[in-house]
Amino acid sequence: MFDFLRGIVVLLAFFFGGSWLHRWGVPIPGGVLGLLLFYFAMVTGVLKLRWVESAADFLLRHMVLLFVPLTVGLMDLGPLLSRQAAAILASLVVSFIAVLFTAGLLARWLLADVPAEECAATEPLP
């Protein structure tokens, strides 16, 4: 429990730090700034992965809950959605295939001569 609370406090601290920088004019969203700062804190060893692991995994595992309200909000956009349905769906499908194929083909080409690592098991994300 202590580990979990400590993790939450650390995550919140980085989120507030990132949001603060964002308010002062850094054009990157606060959460992403927090992510980057946090990542570098771990790379440089200032922060230990195990201090936040349980809290971060918990938050990511139940991330779906956090976007339930926005999904429910689609109900208010009915008229706009039906008017723009073709544009939204076409944009979605074309862009999805473009990203999938760009990454897939580029990776096949660029990684051909890089031997694969031994793989470490990871927690699946939702």
Binding site: G30, G31, Y39, M42, V52, P69, L111, C119, A120
Partner: peptide
């Protein structure tokens, strides 16, 4: 109140990035 927690969840994404980044160092 729930949507707000997407912010800290973004920060939490550093964990899988760091963990898997270590495993994939060469690529």
């Amino acid at each position: 109140l729930l949507t707000w927690w997407l912010g800290p969840a973004t920060v939490a994404l550093a964990v899988p990035m760091y963990r898997n980044g270590l495993a994939l160092r060469r690529s």
